[in-house]
Simulated scan of single mutants.
Amino acid sequence: MEKLNVLPWHEQALWLLGIFLGGLILGLAFYWIIKKILRVSHSELSKDLPRVKNPFVFVVIVLSLQLWPELYFESKTPFITQLSQIVNILAVTWLLIGMVKGIRDSIVRRYKQDVGSSLKLRKLFTQVRLFERIVIVIIVILAIALILMTFDSIRRVGVSILTSAGIAGVIIGLAAQRLIANLLAGFQLAITQPIRLGDVVIVEGEWGTIHEMTLTYVVVAIWDKRMLVVPSTYFIEKPFQNWTRKSGEMLGTVYLYVDYHLPLEPVRKELKRIVNDNPMWDGETANIQVTGSTEKAMEIRALIGADNANDAWNLRVHVREKLIEFLQKEFPEMLPKSRVTLEKDG
């Protein structure tokens, strides 16, 4: 049994508090010096440094506290040694996670300035976010493994588990089959990118945008503010519509049914006037075409362009409303009607 030195417990507590405060001050001082150096050198890293401030200071405090058992114990007890190892692992893990997030912010900010296309930026941001989560998961798993290895009893249990690894592997494999499939699908989505954050998609008949992507599931924000959670395997195994896969530009259509006697040229001019007054129009596509006919009316289609799916939807609604108002006012007799012809005998 290890014995404490002759110092009373309250003096040891004061020394421990002093070392803790000294480590805190030292960590903040180091952080401030590094930040000043980066700012003076105009380094972009100065903008990402706050990500690692707290874990960095914590690491310095932990290193400072390593002095306590050396000073006030005749030798380290097994408990103190193990506790010190666990705290060290947690401190380094926190620091590594902060560094990964700082690197992510640095990459996104740098390419945000260089890449003009929002499509390329969304593609990059999706990849960075997914790979960031992959790296963090690996770091956490390794940290948990290292912590468990500090327990001798668990080490011994591990040897016995390895002898039956074949049976355990089969059981775990069957139980985690769906989880593993989703994880692999998450990796595939990060690399091939059939979808990206911000893409407009139709999934299960629902129109929405990709709101969040993880390794196991994807969250689609539906237009009516609902959130549709879909497993990652869905986007690998099933067909879906991606309206912004190659470009954010969209074409919208408005169908109207009118009488055969309606002159089309005034309607074309009115469509031009409507879209010219609307900032959502892309300035290129706006025309009227006859796309169908029945025994009662002809079908005309207004084709309009917008920069993104949301603008295309709102522009379609606006154009439909204004064209109907135009027909009601200028050509009310050309709206669809049923005709009955009466003929006299003789």
Rank of each mutant, 00 (worst) to 15 (best):
F187K: 02
D105C: 08
N310P: 02
R133H: 14
H211P: 06
G305K: 12
F235K: 00
I147L: 03
V57P: 03
N242S: 04
E237A: 06
P50N: 02
T253K: 12
N88T: 14
L264W: 00
T233G: 00
T233F: 04
Y72D: 03
K329R: 15
L142A: 15
E325C: 04
W68S: 09
I222L: 10
K76H: 15
S118V: 08
K296H: 10
T216I: 13
L38A: 09
R104D: 02
T233I: 00
L184N: 10
L130P: 01
G102D: 02
L303Q: 04
V229R: 12
F131C: 00
I171C: 05
G116H: 11
H211Q: 09
G18M: 09
L256P: 07
F326C: 02
E237Y: 07
R155D: 08
L26H: 03
P263M: 04
R320V: 09
A175M: 05
Q289R: 13
F131S: 07
V319L: 01
I34L: 15
V87D: 06
D282V: 00
I171K: 04
S84L: 07
A312F: 00
L4I: 09
N314W: 08
T192K: 14
P239A: 02
W281V: 07
I202M: 06
M213Y: 00
V290T: 15
Y217I: 01
E333V: 05
E237W: 08
D277S: 10
R109I: 01
N88I: 14
R301I: 13
D282Y: 10
G173A: 08
N5M: 12
M213H: 03
A190L: 02
V254E: 04
T209I: 04
G27M: 08
V60T: 10
I147G: 00
D282E: 05
W243V: 09
E44S: 15
P231Y: 00
W15I: 14
F326E: 01
